[in-house]
């Protein structure tokens, strides 16, 4: 008797628990999980997305098309995205950490400077793209200054290699502010006593950074690298504003291929296969980084 009550009680409270999670589960499942399921299904079909026309099952054809890349349009996009993710993450974190070291003490001047470093993040990426387009375009502010000074203009957006470098630069300009805040928070957690002790032992600035500050920042570094790579893998808005993928296909990212090329040309099957691959790559990259960083973080606990 007592036992059944307990079971019933457990069951009921389990149900009550389930209901507490229901709203979140419904919204998340309905509009994230189900679409991912749809994406996986459509990725195995040829489908133009028009409701009155049915998808045809084509097996792995879309994936084969992406991997074989018969017309060489997707590999450049993968390359561009990789450059943005790797170089961009490196620069974003380098800039953020470097400036965080400069601004770690809370003074009125530093508070002002922190806000100045952060502000591009409250402008949307699309607006950032348009703004820099107007500054660096062939007839933009910088080139007009050069021309008026009798210099030759610079192909910031007109040359494929320059355009990619410009794009990465603009992304770094707009994004490092968030990582800066995270690093500043991480630096607050570094024990001042430990740094002081290291100094008393005769360590100089760089040595203190290398042996005390850097290991203690390890968990922050993991978070900032993973978040910046995740956001850099899906760069789209800023491309739209800055170069619209050009010149040629020099700045077409993977997300641009999905939204502005495949989907815009009614190739929903291919677009979904590309999206599925991106999700898989993002997941693999994130977990690899987290796994690789685990050792560094264990070191952090030892130091902290």
């Amino acid at each position: 008797m007592a036992r059944t009550t307990t079971t019933r009680r457990g069951l009921l409270s389990g149900l009550a628990n389930g209901l507490m999670t229901l709203p979140a589960a419904v919204v998340y499942t309905g509009l994230t999980v189900v679409p991912v399921g749809y994406a996986v299904y459509y990725s195995f079909t040829q489908y133009n997305g028009i409701p009155s026309q049915a998808p045809t099952w084509v097996g792995w054809e879309n994936y084969a098309r992406i991997i074989a890349d018969p017309i060489g349009d997707l590999r450049p996009a993968a390359w561009v995205t990789l450059v943005i993710a790797v170089v961009g993450a490196f620069l974003v974190n380098g800039a953020a950490l470097g400036i965080a070291m400069l601004l770690r003490r809370t003074t009125a001047f530093n508070t002002f400077a922190r806000a100045v470093m952060f502000y591009p993040h409250v402008l949307s990426a699309l607006i950032v793209g348009f703004l820099w387009q107007a500054i660096l375009g062939p007839q933009g502010a910088v080139n007009n200054l050069l021309e008026n000074a009798g210099q030759s203009t610079l192909p910031f957006l007109a040359d494929p290699d320059w355009a990619l470098v410009t794009l990465v630069g603009v992304i770094v300009w707009a994004q490092f502010g968030v990582q800066l805040v995270l690093y500043l928070a991480g630096l607050q957690a570094v024990s001042p006593e430990l740094q002081e002790a290291a100094r008393l032992d005769g360590a100089n600035g760089p040595q203190v950074f290398r042996h005390v500050t850097w290991p203690a920042l390890a968990p922050t570094v993991t978070v900032t690298i993973v978040t910046s790579i995740l956001s850099l893998l899906k760069v789209y808005d800023v491309v739209l504003g800055l170069t619209n993928g050009g010149p040629g296909d020099a700045t077409q990212t993977w997300a641009y291929e999905i939204l502005a090329v495949s989907f815009a040309n009614n190739k929903v099957g291919l677009a979904c296969a590309q999206a599925v691959l991106l999700v898989v790559v993002a997941g693999i990259l994130s977990f690899t980084i987290i796994a690789l960083r685990r050792r560094a973080e264990e070191g952090a606990e030892a130091v902290g």
Partner: peptide
């Protein structure tokens, strides 16, 4: 899961 990528489905 990047939000804009699952927009199509």
């Amino acid at each position: 899961v990047p939000a804009q990528i699952i927009l199509v489905p």
